[in-house]
Amino acid sequence: MNQQNALYTYLLRLGDSALIQSHRLSEWCSRGPILEEDLALTNIALDNLGRAQALLRYAGEVEGKKRTEDDLAYKRGERQFYNNLITELPTGDFAYTIAKQLFIAAFESLLFTELSKSKDDTLAGIAAKTLKEVKYHLVHARDWCYRLGRGTVISNSKLQHAVDELWMYTGEMFEMDEVDATLLKEGIAADLAPLKPKWMEHVTAILKDADILLPAGEFMQTGSRAGIHTEHLGHILTEMQYLQRAYPEAIW
């Protein structure tokens, strides 16, 4: 695999995860448990959207076929998307969103710390900006884990349920293949192997403080690196891409 192809795919993976995560978070608009949380969740959605724009724009440049970030977001099909599966799972209740946010933000704070040292300047720049944002996302998720985990019997059981349900989607975030190997050699990508124990330590500590038990299951779902998704992604794209697909000549 040449470096250009590897970087293009790598950027799509990062960009798609941000894009789909943003989509799910934006579904909270006008549906939050309190107005402040409505604003917080859509704010995180906006951070993710900005990151997706920057990453997909750069992916288009690397690909060299004059595709814009919008072409990449709105004109690829479900088998050409590479976001982590955890980002596309339905929004669920507030506990489900918070558990998702905890797993993702804990991972991303480690990932973007590494990527901010990338030898690819553009990627390093995007990562440095992202890192500031995801640190806040992590604090937001952590604090809500404490509130839900230690608040009431009901909130504890809802968070526990969410953590149990989502656990098997956490392993995929750390998967590496030849795309990563090619870029690692050049000092462009992040080595995810050493991040996993750090992530585990961080997440375990937060869940313990939140009176939540760590799931025992070891099975981890996989597929997104090869563009194999859950059934949910197709519906997201159907909705997201509707206007671009219905009026292909239109400029909006």
Partner: peptide, 25 residues
Amino acid sequence: ITRAPSLRAKQILLAKIQDEGGHGL
């Protein structure tokens, strides 16, 4: 929001609605 026709349009709309919520606050 989930059907906005470009990333820029979506970003502006999300930010706008967030402003409205802030006004409410």
